[in-house]
Design a protein around this nucleic acid. Structure first.
Lengths: 142, 142
DNA sequence: TGCAAAGATGAAACTATTTGCAACTCCATG
DNA sequence: CATGGAGTTGCAAATAGTTTCATCTTTGCA
């Protein structure tokens, strides 16, 4: 059995949720895949320009919003007045953001399992812990 | 020994951090104190108008930014395109936000103590868990 | 295939938030 | 209790992000 390409997996998720695969979205996804960090809408826009000059920034915001709803993209406010976007291709993860140096560390879900259970038990709340950004101080800045 | 008024405590924090107490800020703080939920900058502005018609909305944004830095106010994105602000007068708390009905439940810090310890132990990260908004489904919408 | 409906796009208008600046106010200090 | 400098304010303009709408595309299905 061949492994499914990450691109195809993403496209299937989009399609099976009733959304369309469009050339614009493919370019946006490709830019997101290439950006190894957290890109702002504006940064995505300028990267996209060369390949698709008429692609309007509102299309980017709408694409990001859809991807966010589907859990394929994380939106994070890193404190500089812009929202940043990050593609989930290899499962979910969370962000530890240093308030001082701005470094972003990624971590897996496991640490949150007890919290998730506690929220369900104590508050009867079913937490969707895919989008978590936790602020604080990293080891170096503590 | 008399208990310190909450207002005075807040004012001392502001003053001792090198910021000024101004009539504008007193009105803004008063509105925040009165708003029992999560007020947007615009909502604060319209409440403030009656008492201080010339108070500009950028002054509100700047006051909120200062209060946020001092840890006196929490800024939360509830997903409606506006940021919401909440005054911390009685200790910190967190938000459980239902993705379906939009209901916001507040919860205390205690549930996060094990998570905080785990982050420090496993990632050497000193989490500042005062700003947490957790999305998911509430009991009714689960 | 070919079509209709659901969904997406670009453009412009609109709302939300931030910033630059000159004038003004607070308050620690003398 | 006057003063100077740091901090604030109001305004205008800039930057971010959202929404409306007419037009165009994608996709499931006949």
């Amino acid at each position: 059995m061949l492994p499914m390409q990450p691109g195809k997996l993403t496209e299937n998720t989009i399609r099976s949720s009733g959304h369309h695969i469009t050339p614009q979205r493919l370019v946006i996804l490709d830019v997101l895949k290439g950006s190894n960090g957290h890109a702002s809408a504006d940064e995505i826009h300028s990267h996209v320009r060369s390949r698709c000059p008429k692609l309007h920034i509102s299309t980017i915001y709408r694409a990001l919003d859809m991807l966010k709803r589907l859990g394929l993209v994380t939106e994070t406010a890193l404190g500089d007045g812009k929202l940043r976007y990050h593609l989930h291709v290899k499962g979910y993860h969370h962000h530890l953001i240093c308030e001082k140096c701005g470094r972003v560390e990624e971590m897996d879900e496991a640490t949150f399992t007890p919290l998730k259970a506690a929220l369900k038990r104590k508050h009867r709340f079913h937490a969707d812990l895919r989008h978590l950004a936790i602020f604080g101080r990293c080891q170096a800045c503590a």
